[in-house]
């Protein structure tokens, strides 16, 4: 079987990433049959966005608008021949990082062997500082890590026509929680 491997464009040193060190997730791939690795830092994002922008069209403009404020997009995915070939505890480095870096888990969905989590990093002005998705299924694990400034409506566009009303309402809860925290701080 052919391995489908998308090579990283650059090997990023930790400092340049200014974020999570993906090498800590390498253990997940020990028994994988396929893996996907996409690493797009600021320079490559600008290059890609410029190229797409030059091509024109509404889609290209939407992508360009989405990507303009981003520092990096990182995708890691591993596929396994059967269930039981990875240890979900090997995802803890990422979860710990997100927790200590003040990301908020806005969605956690568990269905039999499948677990999905979505984390957002709130920023001032109603924007987001990042989105992370951790999807652990029986025979596949996918991590999406988007670092940088984006608007909630860009995130909704990313999900396509189906939209993410759940994320939207979670964002609403998040904003309210922030307001309440600010209010409590003032009252203290």
């Amino acid at each position: 079987m052919k391995n489908i491997l998308i090579m990283a464009l650059l090997a990023l040193p930790l400092a340049a990433q200014d974020s999570f060190d993906f090498k800590t997730l390498d253990k997940l791939g020990t028994n994988s049959k396929n893996h996907t690795n996409i690493t797009l830092d600021g320079d490559m994002l600008k290059l890609a966005s410029g190229f797409l922008g030059a091509a024109g069209g509404k889609d290209a403009t939407d992508v360009k608008n989405l990507v303009d404020g981003l520092k990096g997009i990182y995708i890691r995915s591993w596929e396994f021949r059967r269930k039981g070939l990875y240890n979900s505890a090997d995802l803890e480095p990422l979860r710990s990082y997100l927790k200590q870096a003040k990301w908020t888990r806005v969605v956690e969905s568990k269905d039999e062997d499948d677990l999905s989590e979505i984390y957002l990093l709130p920023q001032s002005g109603g924007k987001l500082g990042g989105v992370a998705i951790v999807a652990a299924e029986a025979t596949q694990v996918t991590v999406v890590y988007i670092n940088g400034s984006l608007r909630p409506e860009d995130l909704a566009k990313l999900s396509g026509n189906m939209g993410i009303p759940d994320i939207g309402s979670q964002l609403g809860n998040l904003k309210n929680a922030e307001k309440n925290t600010e209010k409590h701080k003032e009252e203290d």
């Binding site: 052919k2 489908i4 996907t36 596929e79 299924e137 596949q140």
Partner: peptide, 11 residues
């Protein structure tokens, strides 16, 4: 399947 899973849908 060679590549089950949505991730490799395009291929």
């Amino acid at each position: 399947l060679e590549t089950p899973g949505d991730l490799f849908l395009l291929s």
